[in-house]
């Protein structure tokens, strides 16, 4: 199924160029590749391109410069940025400069295909206003949280961690929360991760999270599934030889990720929290039925059927109530919550 859209893929990693070419050719696009900015701009001047997919970080002429030159000479050409970990703020910057969208590394063939299809669709509609939809992709993903952390086909390119991409302030953000004070004392012994009943499934183990907090890898930490896997059993905390309150640090990180919605793509837990908070703010107490229904409707509607039988059995034993109980002085509670909210939290 050949279409008449031609794409130029620019990345200094040949493996990325090749994978993208393979994925996109299969979808019927005409694909050219370039391994650096200079080559890309040459090919761009020569050819008649519709879309340029360019890596943000490259030696010499980087993705940002390629974007600017392309937009200057041919504004109708769409540019999609490839971004690595830690470069999301620059990606946002790129969107402001007119990039159509961006693909965060690592990505699956499906993800790349989706994004390019959207760009193509938009082009074909020839929408008059060309305003880029900032951050829209991540919000979409949040609506449908991706289930797997590991994907065999994932295009995974390891890269050098560049100092400039680190967030110096991240450590202070964490240290200033109750329980976060001792994060500097970690000696990387791994007792926390060895004790954690769930660390085996985390993107980064609690020990790694500690190291990453200190190194300033804010985006990686906040977008990892680790923080949402913590079941709050405090075993790490009571065993840590340095008495670091790791569970509390996990809470601090969850709070930070919650505030900055772009990190909420991998986990269902934020959704559960959101509904729980809404219910408690409304009634002052939890209402299990409402929470379960709302959560599963959004997160996994099929599960409702699976759970309904158990719900019925609990209901028969009077362990399920249809109606919420509201506390008498709900206004007092709401005033308090509003005030706490106005105080801007702990940070």
């Amino acid at each position: 199924m050949k279409n008449n859209v031609s794409i130029l893929v620019v990345d200094d990693e040949p493996i990325v160029c090749d994978s993208c070419k393979k994925i996109l050719t299969e979808k019927g696009f005409t694909v050219e590749t370039a391994l650096n900015g200079e080559e890309a701009l040459k090919k761009f001047k020569k050819g008649d391109l519709d879309i340029v997919i360019v890596d943000l970080k490259m030696p010499g002429i980087d993705g940002m410069e390629v974007l600017q030159s392309v937009k200057k000479s041919k504004p109708e050409v769409d540019v999609v940025m490839i971004t690595g970990y830690g470069t999301i703020p620059s990606a946002v910057e790129a969107m402001k400069l007119g990039a159509a969208d961006y693909v965060p590394k690592p990505f699956t063939p499906k993800e790349l295909g989706q994004i390019i299809s959207q760009v193509v669709e938009k082009r074909s509609k020839l929408v008059a206003e060309k305003a880029p939809k900032k951050g829209a992709i991540l919000l979409d993903v949040f609506k449908k949280p991706s289930k797997v952390a590991y994907h065999p086909e994932r295009v995974w390119v390891k890269d050098i961690k560049i100092e400039e991409a680190l967030d110096e302030n991240f450590l202070n953000e964490v240290r200033s929360t109750p329980g976060g004070e001792r994060v500097m004392d970690c000696m990387q012994c791994g007792t926390c991760s060895g004790s954690c009943p769930l660390s085996y499934r985390m993107d980064y183990t609690p020990r790694e999270i500690n190291a990453m907090v200190r190194a300033g890898l804010r985006d990686e930490v906040l977008s990892s599934n680790s923080i949402w896997m913590c079941s709050s059993c405090y075993l790490c905390t009571v065993r840590c030889p340095r008495q670091i309150k790791i569970t509390d640090i996990m809470y601090a990180l969850k709070n930070l990720a919650m505030k900055d919605k772009r990190f909420l793509k991998k986990a269902k837990s934020p959704l559960l929290s959101k509904y729980f908070v809404a219910i408690v703010n409304r009634y002052g107490r939890n209402h299990e039925l409402e929470l379960t229904l709302k959560f599963f409707l959004r997160a996994n509607p099929r599960a409702i059927l699976k759970h309904s039988l158990m719900g019925l059995r609990l209901f028969l034993r009077k362990r399920f109530s249809l109606f919420p109980k509201r506390i008498k002085n709900i206004n007092q509670l709401r005033t308090m919550v509003r005030k706490a909210e106005a105080l801007g939290g702990l940070r």
């Binding site: 791994g190 060895g194 085996y200 020990r207």
Partner: peptide, 11 residues
Amino acid sequence: VRCEDTAIGAI
């Protein structure tokens, strides 16, 4: 013995 083998990155 349960531990994190930090050198290979696994529990």
